[in-house]
Design a protein around this nucleic acid. Structure first.
Length: 560
RNA sequence: GCUGGCGUAGCUCAGUGGUAGAGCAGCUGCCUUGUAAGCAGCAGGUCGUGGGUUCGAUCCCCACCGCCAGCUCCA
């Protein structure tokens, strides 16, 4: 770096998962040519097996040694242990003329570094603070062998092939027309069908688990958001106010909770009717900063499978236990099997009775223990209004996604002065649980697309069976087969394009349709189909239509 | 929001200071097809939007919109 870019200012360069980065300031961004040049030099240095030597120096020596490096000087002045600056002692590693702060340990020589690749450069803030100047960060990946490196690069390509934004176009599921604005999606017929299947599943399972479905509007007066505290704590995440008659301000909802609270408040509540579980597929809008938007995974308009549970303090533990079981059931139904959770505890600045915090946190922890869910405690990471559990899943290629969140909320019942009548006919304050299992339907769909690489299991596939007439004289028979299968509840499509069979087969396969049925002369004569299943090799000829129907119904059976 | 890159047909992309091209998709015709692309023809673009420079801008400059990578953010 210093030989190629004399005067370059070096910041920090730590190892990270799968590799490393280093932040520099060379007064301009790096170009792809710069990266290539640096990578070439690095390969040369590795081949020369240059030694790294550890030295321990004192603070004054350090300041002198790094006098022309302002970031290093700052690190020494601030005494950052992670960078090798200890109490009056500094460890540095020397490699020929180059010397850098480093806590160590360090490989003995450059020959120990066998396989790496520089991946990209991008801006990054000094010390990660957006108020500080931006540096240029170079990312690289490093492995024990070329084989490991190749495998890693292959994983990156696999992730790229699964990218839901690309599959969304290829499978004609959704799009983001620029006319709409950033972070707003439209769902095409096939995508909307997948959504409907997910949403129907969600509604049905909630009804089956003693939730009450409610329905609420998209906007509400400013006053409601003042009461809920959103205008104090969340205003920058909200779309700006709309002013109506007499200067009355309305806001589009970023969350559903205040509406569900109003449902709770619509009548006097008794302990006999708690817990009360209000559920809604609630569409909300949040003003996410433009740079964070990412396909369906980070979007400005989305629909939550949202519920607010109102219960007594005494009911909290049992309710949380049942809720976590319900959550895992839902996630398993969508094909996820590996779960990890975070338990976020009381932050320094928090509201509510500390004893209540303890009990709620213990209840959350107990539910994790009973469910045998591996979890980590995120000390002090809870919201100011209550502790929470976040559930993460691993997808088919091992990536971790946060899906479900279960939050205990001591604040909103207070804000809205919620009450219920106790057995002693006193007025008590309920506890609220705020929870979303899929999180957002859009994001969940996006994650499913990546998890399944677009090849949805039968029950989620928008088209479960494609029926391909060999020649156009078989179109009528194909339509008859389609009717028969549709009457069994299957989603089928006849491909009557004027194309060769090979072309139609290719179209059905690239659309990742679970079952491809071919019908020709033999089939018309015998009442059969040729059957080719996505997950099986080869094809089967002469399958009687009722048999094919039975098998497809089984293949496409929903989890419940 | 910040830094950098990008925006050409429905999709994927080429290209040029003198108003543009390919493949796929689409349409039409031929073919009547038995398991991953049959053949031919046609049509399709205000080159993201608005300003500026220029005799002339899709190309150069500025702003905005949108996309991508990373940073920051996600109560």
């Amino acid at each position: 770096m210093l030989t190629s870019f004399p005067g370059a200012q070096l910041a920090i360069g730590p190892p990270i998962t799968d590799g490393f980065y280093y932040d520099f300031d060379i007064g301009r961004p790096f170009t792809p040519d710069d990266i290539e040049l640096l990578e070439g030099k690095m390969h040369k240095i590795l081949a020369e097996d240059q030694p790294f030597d550890r030295e321990v120096i004192d603070r004054d020596q350090g300041l002198e040694m790094f006098a022309d490096q302002r970031f290093k000087t700052e690190i020494i002045t601030d005494g950052e242990a992670s960078q090798g600056v200890g109490d009056g002692v500094i460890t540095v590693y020397r490699n020929h003329d180059f010397v850098d702060l480093c806590r160590g340990p360090h490989v003995r020589s450059t020959g120990f570094l066998s396989a790496f690749k520089l991946l990209r450069s991008a801006g990054a803030y000094w010390r990660g603070d957006e108020h500080n100047p931006q540096l240029q960060r170079i990312y690289g990946t490093a492995w024990n062998s070329q084989k490991d490196l190749d495998a890693y690069l292959e994983r990156l390509e696999e992730a790229d092939r699964r990218d839901h934004r690309k599959l969304g176009v290829a499978l004609d599921l959704f799009s983001f027309p620029s006319e709409l604005g950033s972070g707003l999606a439209i769902w095409h017929p096939k995508g909307a069908l997948v959504r409907k299947i997910i949403e129907d599943y969600s509604r049905n399972t909630h009804l089956a688990h003693n939730y009450d479905i409610v329905s609420t509007p998209h906007v509400a007066k400013a006053n409601l958001w003042e009461t809920s505290g959103h205008l104090d704590f969340y205003a920058e995440g909200m779309y700006p106010a709309m002013e109506l008659d007499h200067g009355q301000e309305y806001y589009v909802k970023p969350m559903n909770c205040p509406f569900h609270i109003l449902v709770y408040q619509s009548s006097a509540r008794s302990y006999r009717r708690l817990p009360m579980r209000l559920y809604e597929l609630g569409t909300v809008y949040r003003y996410e900063r433009s740079g964070v938007l990412h396909g369906l995974l980070r979007i400005r308009g989305f629909t939550q499978d949202d519920s607010h549970i109102f219960c007594t303090e005494a009911q909290l533990a049992e309710e949380l236990q049942a809720l976590l079981d319900f959550t895992l059931m839902v996630l398993r139904d969508f094909g996820f099997t590996d779960f990890e959770a975070d338990l976020s505890t009381k932050p320094e600045k928090a509201i509510g009775d500390p004893e209540l915090w303890d009990r709620a946190t213990d209840a959350l922890r107990a539910s994790l223990e009973v469910a045998d869910l591996p979890y980590e405690v995120a000390e002090g990471e809870g919201a100011f209004y209550g502790p929470k559990i976040d559930v993460h899943v691993r997808d088919a290629i091992g990536r971790r996604w946060q899906l479900s969140t279960i939050q205990v909320d001591f604040a909103q019942p207070e804000n809205f002065s919620l009450e219920f009548n106790s057995p002693q006919n006193t007025r008590e304050r309920p506890v609220m649980i705020h929870r979303a299992l899929m999180g957002s339907i859009e994001r969940f769909a996006g994650i499913l697309i990546e998890h399944y690489a677009g090849a949805f299991p039968g029950w989620l596939a928008p088209v479960q069976a494609a029926i391909l007439p060999v020649a156009d004289r078989h179109n009528d028979y194909a339509a008859g087969v389609a009717d028969e299968l549709a009457s069994l509840g299957l989603r089928v499509e006849v491909d009557d394009h004027d194309d060769t069979l090979g072309e139609k087969v290719r179209r059905a396969i690239t659309a990742k349709t679970p079952a491809v049925l071919v019908v020709g002369d033999d089939d018309v004569e015998h009442g059969t189909v040729g059957l080719r299943l996505r997950d099986d090799e080869g094809e089967e000829r002469g399958v009687p239509v009722p048999d094919a129907g039975r098998r497809l119904v089984e293949l496409c059976a929903p989890p419940r």
